[in-house]
Simulated assay, not measured.
Amino acid sequence: MAKYSDEFKLKVVKEYLTGKIGLKRLAKKYSIPSNTAIRTWVAAYKAYGNNGIKRKRSKEVYSVQFKVEVLHFMKQTGASYQETAIQFKMNNPRLIAKWNQKFLEEGIEGLQEKAKGRPSMSKKSKPTKQEKEMSREEQLERENELLRLEVAYLKKLKAFRENPEAFLGKHKQSLPLNSKKKDSD
């Protein structure tokens, strides 16, 4: 459950926007540990209205390509997590911070979705020679995919360095097409 309800966030944001009370006093008044949360709510509200404050009920799954584009944009422009989230129409800047941390620790593999839960037990005790070959084949396919992503990333980086304005103008219009969002149960 969320720590603060959507109604509470909206109340605090509207009170701040009246201009009668500052961030620190609001945080103290409502016993919020830090005024950073209020600042984030206000930025999201200004960018998206009520939808910026609402907590999403379903998990959105983003492609590795989309995550790389978001991190690349943030690095090249020097934008904060909040500014980057607004640019890419996301209302959770902490998600971008997690992606950045994973990318720094594990590289591009850290951005891939990982299967959750305990793996199922196999009925066979020893893998056959054919299964070993399949796993090697799968490894090579995975490596191929990662290399393709890396090449695509480097091409975009080169294009951005050559002409940043044209690159950003082109990708601002095509952002919704680049992300794959799915609802998960």
Rank of each mutant, 00 (worst) to 15 (best):
R118D: 00
P176Q: 00
S174G: 03
S5W: 01
A37G: 14
S135A: 04
Y4N: 06
T40S: 02
Y16I: 05
V13R: 04
V64K: 06
E7M: 00
M1K: 02
D6N: 11
N92T: 15
A166I: 00
K132N: 05
L23V: 10
M134N: 07
Q82V: 14
S125T: 06
Y81L: 11
I21C: 01
E137L: 10
T84I: 11
V68F: 03
A2W: 05
F8P: 00
R142T: 13
E162T: 07
P164T: 01
Q87S: 05
L149P: 00
Q65S: 13
V68H: 12
A2D: 13
E83A: 12
S80F: 02
G169R: 10
Y45Q: 00
L175Y: 11
M1E: 09
L111E: 01
V70R: 00
K102W: 07
N35Q: 10
V13K: 03
L95T: 14
A79P: 05
I32V: 11
L149E: 08
Q82D: 04
G52Y: 13
L26Y: 07
Q139Y: 13
L140S: 13
K3L: 12
G169T: 14
F160C: 06
T77G: 05
A152F: 09
N163E: 06
L177K: 04
I53W: 11
K56Q: 12
K89F: 09
E141M: 14
K116C: 06
L175S: 13
G19R: 04
S34H: 15
L157P: 00
E109S: 12
E7K: 04
K20H: 06
L175W: 14
L147Y: 15
I38F: 04
Y48W: 06
A44Q: 13
Y30K: 07
K28L: 06
R148L: 08
V151H: 14
L147D: 13
Q87P: 00
Y153K: 09
E138Y: 11
Y4I: 11
E15G: 08
N51V: 14
I38G: 01
E145L: 11
K59H: 14
Y81A: 13
K172A: 15
V151E: 12
R136F: 05
P93Y: 12
K59M: 07
Y30H: 15
N144V: 08
